[in-house]
Simulated assay, not measured.
Amino acid sequence: MLLDALLLNAAILLAAVLALWAISVRINDVSFIDSFWGAGMAMLAVVSWLQLGPGAGPLTTLIMAMTAALGFRLGIYLLRRWRREGEDQRYARILKKDREAGRFAFAALTKIWLGQAVLLFLVSSPAQVGILASNAGSGPLPPVALAGLALYLLGVFFEWTGDWQLARFKADPANEGKILDTGLWRYTRHPNYFGDCAAWWGIWLCCAGVGWNYALYTLPGPLFLTFTLTKWSGAALLEAGMKKKRGDKYADYIARTSPFIPWPPKRAA
């Protein structure tokens, strides 16, 4: 039953991806895929919850609500950013040669949309499995799930507040060329990425509340997310660009500020 439900989720995700791919071909821009990263995870959580019908217990509903709130908020935030800033230059560089050669549609599907769909399904697996495998009924939430909820709420605070502080900073013309080093950005160079990571580890702990065997099966999800946020397309890629644009200013910020986990800044020598 669990496998059948996951296959249905995969089919729904593929249908959504193909529809969005067709839109991206029509507008000649795939950049809005970033907004689907969060919204797609939320969609899979809601679909998983709906498959249970009346059998959804408190832990099941909690995992769904946690994932939906996290994913839909991120999706709306990134969609608004794309509408405001236009095509993301990362995707423009990836697809430049294919666009010039008239292969944009095929490349957008194979290089961007399908790959992202696989990773999205993997990262959101703790939420999907935690919801679909839950048989907690109406009993109290297990301690590990309460710990997961606490970690999730910490992550949500850092992600949402960090994004809000960054948006306010960018909206002020007086900050042009400056480095945001106040608020949460004083304690970590990436409060939003740290928050997203912590929130998903919290969801994984809630999945462990359903059963540690299910948590073990879905462990690659938060592990991959942690890797991509710290070493691949998240902090590492962003910092490479910031070093080029801000030079010594950003180097000074790096020297005194924790790279990921919040920590008091170092004092100047």
Rank of each mutant, 00 (worst) to 15 (best):
T67C: 03
Y77P: 03
L78D: 00
R80I: 06
A68L: 13
A92H: 05
R84G: 02
Y91K: 00
A56R: 15
A65K: 04
Y91D: 02
I63F: 02
I94M: 15
A68N: 05
L70E: 00
L78M: 06
G71I: 13
L59M: 02
I63E: 00
L74K: 03
A69I: 15
Q89L: 13
A68K: 05
K96E: 14
L95V: 11
W82I: 05
L70P: 00
L70F: 14
R81Q: 10
L74N: 03
D88W: 05
M66V: 01
Q89F: 13
K96H: 14
K96P: 04
M66C: 02
E87H: 11
R83D: 10
T61S: 10
R83C: 10
R90I: 10
D98A: 08
F72C: 02
R80D: 04
P58E: 06
K97R: 10
F72W: 12
R81W: 15
D88I: 00
G71M: 07
I76P: 01
Q89Y: 15
W82Q: 06
R80L: 12
Q89R: 13
R73Y: 09
D98V: 01
T60M: 03
F72P: 00
G71N: 09
G71W: 12
R90D: 08
L62H: 07
R80S: 04
T61H: 12
L59S: 04
R81F: 14
L70W: 15
A65N: 03
D88C: 00
L62D: 06
A65L: 14
E87V: 11
I63N: 00
T61A: 04
A56M: 13
A68F: 12
A65E: 03
T61D: 07
G57T: 05
Y91W: 10
G55Y: 14
G55D: 13
G71C: 10
K96C: 05
M64H: 09
G57H: 09
L62E: 10
A65S: 04
L59P: 04
G57Y: 07
D88H: 05
T60R: 02
A69N: 11
K96I: 08
L62N: 08
R84D: 10
P58K: 07
G55R: 13
R73D: 07
I94D: 12
T67V: 05
R93M: 08
L70N: 01
A92T: 04
W82M: 04
I94R: 12
M64V: 09
R90K: 08
G57W: 10
M64A: 12
L95W: 15
G86S: 12
T67L: 04
A56I: 12
G86P: 06
Q89V: 09
R83H: 14
R73E: 08
G75I: 14
E87Y: 11
R93L: 09
T60N: 01
L78R: 01
R90Y: 13
E87S: 11
F72Y: 13
L79C: 03
W82T: 04
K96N: 06
I94N: 10
K97A: 13
M66N: 00
R84N: 08
R93H: 09
P58A: 05
M66H: 01
K97I: 03
L95S: 12
L70A: 02
L59Q: 02
R83Q: 14
G75L: 14
T67F: 05
L74S: 02
G75M: 12
D88A: 01
G75Y: 15
R81A: 06
T60V: 00
T61Y: 11
L79E: 07
I76T: 06
R90N: 04
K97D: 13
A92V: 07
D88S: 01
R73G: 01
A68S: 03
